[in-house]
Design a protein around this nucleic acid. Structure first.
Length: 564
RNA sequence: CGGGGUGUGGCUCAGGUGGUAGAGCGCCUGGUUCGGGACCAGGAGGUCGCAAGUUCAAGUCUUGUCACUCCGACCA
């Protein structure tokens, strides 16, 4: 890459449109440019990085025997209606019509088409296992795009699908894919953890996420360092702490608590610790009202509730619904005498002589016990907190934030049944194919790498990802000796197969150095004052001092550095 | 979808009470510089998001609209 003849520019100031470090660095280094909300152009330098990430993923996919193909992004809407997912995606799907009025969508994910591809091929158990993947642009109408390439509306994803005869086959395919993912993310230089996740809209048996750890991550990871436990907050199991003390159960009594409708107000008014309260939240879940009971200092985990009930939507009930159900204003609901299904968190099961709302404005009950009401269900429905006991008992959990750069799903038979994908076994019986699906967000990887690897001057690319590995900076373009040596070196190093850049612009040295630091060149070779001795400077990423090396040794040093 | 903010040159922004647009950076020319985002002089570049309205006169006031953005809701 000869800089004076290349599309190359940098910006000195942060862009007002960008709200993340990675987004700003990528924009300032001229690698990406926002075109619209959640829509980005990949400029030449950015595309180089993007292609390197793709190459790593492609190599790892091919290495486990997955075959690449390409599905369309523009898809007849019927495909998703048939699988039952059109409604599940709802407004997050981009929808459009052709000139005849026929409805189409831009694919948000491609299980359906891959199932269709499998259907063309798979008839017999002899046709499996088989594994397919693609790189394809996905479209999701995100309500709120943000953080540069991290939450966008158009993005390239590598999605892979495996097809097996049975669950044992799926387990093997899943394990292979999991290993490929570990190798791919390791090669990218990402710091990541693998967490158990919710199967959500995708459905299925198991979901795990590859989460790049960083502060702007939108997912909360629950970690226990000694045991290596890692879970997404959404599904992190809570364990019951403490035991039920039945030694001194008291009869419940009504107490007047004027204007004390929040937990904070009641605890203050009654001067009791928040752990002595049980709060009762009225939710509307798939249209029906439910009461959820949790200890006062605990929060509802909506994912757990939805999974428990097999429901799709839940929201706090409207104030008028609460009033009708509890015969009291919001803030005084309680389980005693309440005519709603009651789902009680397991932790409440070890509480005694606690305080609940009395279903009567400005009143609570004290000294309530489990015998005073009957929950419909008792389950783990609370959100885990930092410092809680880990589900495996190994210790206390801490939280971290993560960017989901990849996920793996054991889908099982859900889509094959929906898409009528069956095969004949050796005994001539029909069985549904057992599927897995696996995604990697390429742009997210790029953003996460930058988010994890930068300093005050710019990006610090891992050398295998960097847009160029080596930059030759010619200090003085009017000095013929420097120019000639620079271009000779450029020729020589280009033969190594590495990506080489020569900065031959008529700029001052400071400008060139700043630009190279901004775009994140792992090795900078400076052709300057030492050229009179036949030497140049090599400055390796992470080293504060440059080393002076004779021109004759440069190639050797560069090659040794890169394989290191 | 609810609430807030912002739209002025390629970028970052300034433009009390209305009077016909500026700065810094970037770009072009010349000169002095030349190893960590140089300096001097000259210059090019703007339908002030868009549309109506008020007014002799609108970047500025009114209304509408679009875009971007933040908080919330939502979220593979």
């Amino acid at each position: 890459m000869i800089l004076s003849k290349s599309y190359f520019f940098t910006l000195r100031e942060d862009s007002r449109e960008e709200d993340s470090t990675s987004g700003n660095l990528l924009v300032r280094s001229g690698m990406i440019k926002k075109v619209g909300s959640g829509i980005y152009a990949l400029l030449p330098l950015g595309l180089r990085v993007f292609e390197k990430i793709k190459r790593i993923v492609r190599e790892e996919m091919n290495a486990i025997g997955s075959q690449e193909l390409t599905m369309p992004a523009l898809i007849p809407e019927d495909v998703y209606i048939d699988s039952g997912r059109r409604d599940a995606f709802g407004d997050s799907m981009f929808a459009l019509k052709d000139r005849y009025g026929k409805p189409y969508v831009l694919g948000p994910t491609h299980e359906e088409l891959f199932a269709a591809a499998a259907k063309m091929y798979i008839n017999s158990f002899r046709d499996m296992p088989v594994s397919l993947y693609q790189f394809q642009t996905k479209y999701r109408d995100e309500p709120r795009p943000r953080f540069g390439l991290i939450r966008v509306r158009e993005f390239v994803m590598k999605d892979a699908y495996t097809f097996d005869r049975d669950e044992a086959g799926l387990d093997a395919a899943y394990a292979a894919m999991y290993g490929a993912y570990e190798r791919a993310f390791d090669r990218m230089g990402l710091n990541y953890v693998i967490v158990r996740a919710s199967t959500g809209v995708m459905g299925g048996l198991l979901s795990e996420e590859f989460q790049a750890v960083c502060d702007i991550g939108e997912d909360i990871l629950v970690l226990e360092d000694n045991s290596g436990y890692a879970s997404n907050l959404e599904v992190a199991e809570c364990v019951v702490e403490g035991e039920l003390d039945t030694s001194n159960l008291l009869p419940y009594e009504e107490v007047h608590t004027p204007n004390a409708g929040t937990i904070a107000e009641v605890t203050a008014f009654l001067n009791q610790p928040v752990e002595k309260f049980v709060k009762t939240l009225i939710y509307r879940i798939d249209g029906e009202l439910y009461a959820l009971c949790l200890r006062g200092d605990h929060e509802v985990n909506e994912t757990k509730v939805l999974n428990l009930l097999g429901a799709l939507n839940m929201e706090l009930a409207a104030p008028e619904d609460v009033a009708a159900a509890t015969r009291a204003p919001v803030g005084f609901a309680g389980p005693i005498g309440l005519d709603l299904p009651i789902i009680m968190d397991r932790q409440v099961g070890v509480m005694s002589n606690f305080i609940v709302g009395a279903n009567k404005g400005d009143y609570h009950y004290m000294n309530v016990n489990l015998s005073d009401f009957t929950p419909t269900r008792v389950a783990d429905i609370r959100q885990i907190k930092e410092g809680d006991l880990c589900a495996n008992g190994a210790g206390r959990v801490r939280f971290a934030r993560g960017i989901e750069v990849g996920n793996t799903f054991k889908l099982g038979e859900k889509y094959s049944k929906a898409m009528d994908l069956y095969y004949t076994d050796a005994d001539n019986h029909l069985h549904p194919v057992v599927m897995g699906s696996y995604g990697i967000g390429i742009g997210r990887c790029l953003a996460a790498i930058v988010e994890q690897n930068h300093n005050e001057l710019g990006i610090v690319w891992p050398k295998q990802i960097a847009p160029v590995q080596v930059a030759i900076v010619v200090i003085n373009m009017k000095n013929e000796q420097q120019v000639e040596a620079g271009f000779d070196l450029y020729e020589e190093l280009s033969a190594t197969g590495l990506d080489i850049l020569i900065d031959d612009r008529n700029e001052r040295a400071g400008v060139k150095f700043m630009d190279m630091d901004l775009i994140g060149v792992p090795l900078r070779i400076t052709v300057g004052r030492d050229i009179v001795d036949g030497c140049v400077e090599l400055k390796f990423q992470g080293e504060s001092e440059a080393v002076v090396v004779p021109l004759t040794e440069v190639r050797e040093r560069v090659e040794a550095w890169f394989v290191d």
